[in-house]
Design a protein around this nucleic acid. Structure first.
Lengths: 345, 345
DNA sequence: CTGAAAGCGCTTACAG
DNA sequence: CTGAAAGCGCTTACAG
């Protein structure tokens, strides 16, 4: 059984009160007593009972993270960023995975509320189009910060990238290298990211006198941005058109699926079709051709998200109000093989 | 502020005791009272204060996981397996990352002990060669289950694969396709997995009348199985030998680095050198050539690990003793492009 | 069937 | 400088 304060106090013939204060360096305890208590605590390897502390202080030093998918280059980087910052501040991180399902996400948020985590970091599931569960948590004064997959209508801090601009740049890059008919693999319908990337794509076309054609936009039935989706959409596109010469694809993993399918179909990337992906998955550097993409700073997003949450947890503890902030992280267009056309005419 | 039992009791003019028992369906509470209490609890969205419950019951319904690296195909699959099983049993999962460092790992285990998690799942850091921190946790009756990267000398349950057999099969596959001089990228020195895979490699050679040559074994200075390591070792090997025709590589990610380097050097994979990796990272299917590898069941390992830990947590709660078990999960050799030599002579 | 009481292990306002 | 007391919110053995 772990050692308790009471036992320390008894061995030293002092009160529990004094023992407690000594360990916390209260000013009104004599140096001698402090030294005695600290020495014994160390000797016995005393660890305060976390539950008792939490029950008194109302702080759990634990935060919850709800994420659509753990096995995912971007999100696993975010997790790493969160954990690394949390550790510096002495916080523990509970990870929950929603599997892109609204029901799971809702259930998990309730679990975290019940477990009294000090705050919640959440990236929405693709299936989420009702935000009451999150609003409810916020109403109950639980600090909540959304990252990457956010809902604009929820009033809380958000850590994001500018998907519209990034998609615009990705599409513009295709235009710059001479693509005349540019398709878009849009991914699932609901998430704000997909919407914004689509808007960026459309806007880039319109700004460069290229007509936007809805039939060039390929959706994803399955609800997640998968390798298979890329294959299926590429095959479909190959059937539908023979003059598409560029594609802006929602996510690198989907782009990899597309490239695989195109290679099987004998379509040369980038000479027949140039491709720009999104997110800069590690894989994109090692596949042939390497994939031009938008670098999305997952690790930094994790760090920033935790730090914002931490600020709000602290503020709330002292009764201060923090105005929700939206922090936009920088992205970068990385030009690689999938858009380096060999000049040959 | 969250609603408490006391408030419910007051509104209903009953005692806290009765309210508590009603919610937990004690037999000695009248059906009427039960109904009243439950109805009000539901109406007020009552959630028992987790800390108070934990303080009384000594259970936190939370486990901790210490893992070397989150951004990692294999480990992120393990995490997913753990989370999915934990969820079924109502457990929350705290994830900590050791960054392959012994000091971090030790610190994190202490954190988890202090936080009173109900049990710990751990995969050792490459840098860990002292196991006192783990033995200490076990001595304090904390259920601990090791997975994948284990220490044989620690007496606890272990969920593993048979690295020796798997490596043997991988190497034998190279022999079967006609390789005459087979090198090995061994990875870091300490971990049992690296040792066992090396043993399997060596044994396969010896069983097939091929002389084991230590100069064909390439270590990893850096301590982790990285893409760069693969590149560096491949370049070195290319300088050292011109007649190596097969390599068994510790991890797929390293194999991908090696393939990249060989391609730059004009070495044809698999015709000049055939390669077998380890772990079946998703990437290995999409790179050219695709990589023959050992499929390592990460998701199942996560599930099995949690379930074993759960068993031990329950047993301990009821004062039973559970004999530590070592569960070995099946692996499979997957033959792909990197070992499909084009016959041409 | 109901409830007063003790207690989990700590913190902190208060008295001396 | 020290300590008795109250209390965080719950559970459970015990009495009635």
């Amino acid at each position: 059984m772990p050692i308790t304060l009471k036992e320390i106090a008894e061995k030293l013939n002092i009160s529990v009160t004094t023992a407690s204060k000594a360990l916390k360096d209260y000013a009104d305890v004599s140096p001698k007593t402090k030294a005695k208590v600290k020495a014994l605590a160390k000797e016995l390897n005393y660890q305060p009972n976390a539950f008792a502390v939490h029950l008194r202080t109302k702080e759990s030093k634990t935060i919850g993270v709800i994420i659509p998918e753990v096995v995912h280059h971007f999100f696993s980087n975010v997790i790493r960023g969160i954990i690394s910052e949390a550790e510096k501040k002495g916080y523990l991180v509970i990870i929950l995975q929603s599997n892109e399902s609204y029901d799971m996400e809702k259930k998990q948020l309730e679990l975290l509320m019940k477990q009294q985590v000090d705050g919640v970091l959440i990236s929405l599931a693709n299936g989420t189009n009702n935000f009451d569960h999150i609003k409810k948590a916020i109403q109950q004064n639980k600090p909540v910060v959304m990252f990457d997959k956010i809902a604009k209508v929820v009033n809380c801090s958000k850590i994001i990238i500018n998907d519209i601009d990034a998609a615009y740049n990705a599409t513009k890059h295709l235009i710059d290298i001479g693509c005349k008919k540019i398709a878009h693999f849009r991914g699932p319908l609901l998430p704000q990211n997909s919407i914004d990337r689509f808007i960026g794509y459309k806007r880039a076309l319109e700004d460069h006198d290229m007509k936007y054609d809805p039939s060039l936009v390929y959706l994803c039935e399955c609800g997640d941005n998968s390798f298979e989706e890329g294959k299926i959409n590429a095959q479909q596109l190959h059937q539908d058109f023979n003059d598409v010469d560029g594609i802006f694809i929602n996510t690198d993993l989907v782009a990899i699926g597309a490239i695989t399918a195109f290679q099987e179909l004998g379509v040369n990337i980038p000479n027949d079709i140039a491709i720009v992906g999104f997110s800069n998955w590690f894989m994109s550097t090692v596949i042939t051709p390497s994939i031009s993409t938008i670098d999305q700073p997952g690790y930094a997003m994790g760090q920033t998200s935790f730090n914002q949450l931490y600020k709000e947890i602290k503020a709330q503890k002292y009764g201060d109000y923090v105005e929700p902030e939206t922090i936009t992280l920088k992205t970068e267009l990385l030009k690689r093989g999938s858009t380096q056309k060999t000049i040959c005419n």
